[in-house]
Amino acid sequence: MGLTNPAAGNAEDEVTTVSAVSPNWVTTRLDFLTNWARSNSLWPMPFGTACCAIEFMATAASRFDLARFGMERMSFSPRQADVLICAGRLPFKLAPVIRRIWDQMPQPKWAISMGACASTGGIFDNYSMVQGIDTIIPVDVYVPGCPPRPEGLMYGILLLQKKIKGETIADDTLRDEKLVGPSGLFLPPHRVDELSEPFGNSVQQTRSS
């Protein structure tokens, strides 16, 4: 095979074959190895609530084939899932459900918010709809679109993989659980108001006092 052994440096221009050292090891950084393994075997917890879920199913099916990115195993049990994909609008009535599922997922875990509704409430700027799931759970990647095309979701997944590859296991703050605090929210109330603010020519939403 003729790989250069980096440990040997260029002291004597010595070429070592891998098999001459050992048939079964390579040196690498632990972070690289962990991130490589994590990012290429993301098991999604599909949380499909609306029309976006149809596009998510298309992404997982043969034509677009999510398996190419190591995600063929849909994990309908949150305990075995790595990435929660919220595909579709989230009514307030489902808020405790998605929060419970997120809390049940073990670390390391990530979340993708798929589509305009999951990310911002979309066209459903009304009394019954969560204005962005980031007011309920922390989100890593937002995929825009109504619905996003499968390519869009895949781009989001690739962005998530890129993000994971930049993480380091030395930084355990990345793995902090962001729990619902005594205020009943995981963010300060004014942040939730801010995230939920209507845009465009909509009128003001009532603010927390």
Binding site: F92, A95, V130, L185, P189, V192, S196, R207
Partner: peptide, 27 residues
């Protein structure tokens, strides 16, 4: 009662309060 005409489209409470109450529900 949300479909009454005197009910504001986004509800009476702030979004934070709505979110808090929704999360407090036990399905």
């Amino acid at each position: 009662y949300p479909l009454r005409k005197d009910f504001p489209l986004r509800g009476h409470f702030s979004r934070a309060e709505q979110t808090r109450q929704a999360l407090a529900a036990n399905p």
